[in-house]
Design a protein around this nucleic acid. Structure first.
Lengths: 145, 145
DNA sequence: TAGAATAGTTCATGAAGTGAACTATTCACT
DNA sequence: AGTGAATAGTTCACTTCATGAACTATTCTA
């Protein structure tokens, strides 16, 4: 491995961490509700993938099924989602965001997007496009390992 | 806010999550030791910033000081770091990576970098450069909010 | 129809975070 | 010089989130 690559990865790692941290701060700030950022992310996923299952979330988030059960319980206790058991294959439990949950996601998403959008104002359209393309390419390459 | 921006941020968010998850998987796989990825990240930071303090880490990682105390305890119990109290200003405790810790970081870093390097092989030099530049720019813009 | 596979839950445990209260030390100022 | 504010770190009680094994319930399969 070349010295240069190591240097690049260091810069990459450092920038990624800073971005991740800042997005988290923005989310904490914009979530006007007693849920955590993790809970919001899960809720957001369920809203974007209506009728998804716990197993699907476990795979998507890279955690065990029991972790998802606990997370779903917390969201359920707060009245943000519902469990709907499949009538045909009664092993499956589909997750469904309640009206209260939908409202929370939509409101918070707008706030967060506006905030991130403000940051993106420092970039021109082509730069953003190129950046996101590279980001998706990297995600894709990594997924296929 | 334009529809387009929302769409872009969705893609961005999705790609970021996938990358973050994959890097975590790589790290878990490459850490041949009984420490967690969080512990490794902290150890790595201390190694790159010799003689740093708990407060510095707390700010850097965006967590409270008590969380750092706990993390430092775990690393200390494993013989990876040492605490050195400042002789002049006895409030300060400087953190210092032991030989065992240095060896662990160097070994693991090489493994992780090799693995990420393999992914980066799908990109040409200019693409990587542009990508990391944008990444750093975004991190910088976000830091100044 | 017996046994494998799948979906989800429960439980005990540990890691990591919070925030308030605390100790110890140093700084700042009249 | 001496008192009160500021700073660095720790402790404590508590919550969240993760793991993995054992479990229930259901469906598939051969």
């Amino acid at each position: 491995m070349q010295i240069e690559l190591k240097e690049l990865i260091n810069r990459y790692q450092d920038a990624m961490n800073r971005i991740y941290r800042n997005v988290n701060i923005i989310m904490k700030e914009k979530i006007h509700s007693d849920i955590t950022t993790d809970q919001f992310s899960t809720l957001q996923y369920i809203q974007k993938h209506e009728q998804c299952t716990s197993t699907e979330i476990a795979n998507e988030f890279g955690v065990g099924k029991s972790a998802v059960t606990a997370q779903v319980n917390r969201l359920h206790e707060k009245g943000l989602i519902e469990r709907i058991r499949d009538g045909k294959d009664r092993r499956n439990v589909y997750l469904h965001v309640t009206d209260k949950g939908i409202e929370l996601v939509n409101y918070t998403e707008n706030e967060v997007y506006a905030s991130i959008g403000k940051n993106l104002a420092h970039f021109d359209d082509e730069e953003i496009q190129t950046f996101i393309d590279s980001l998706e390419k990297l995600a894709h390459v990594m997924d296929n390992e």
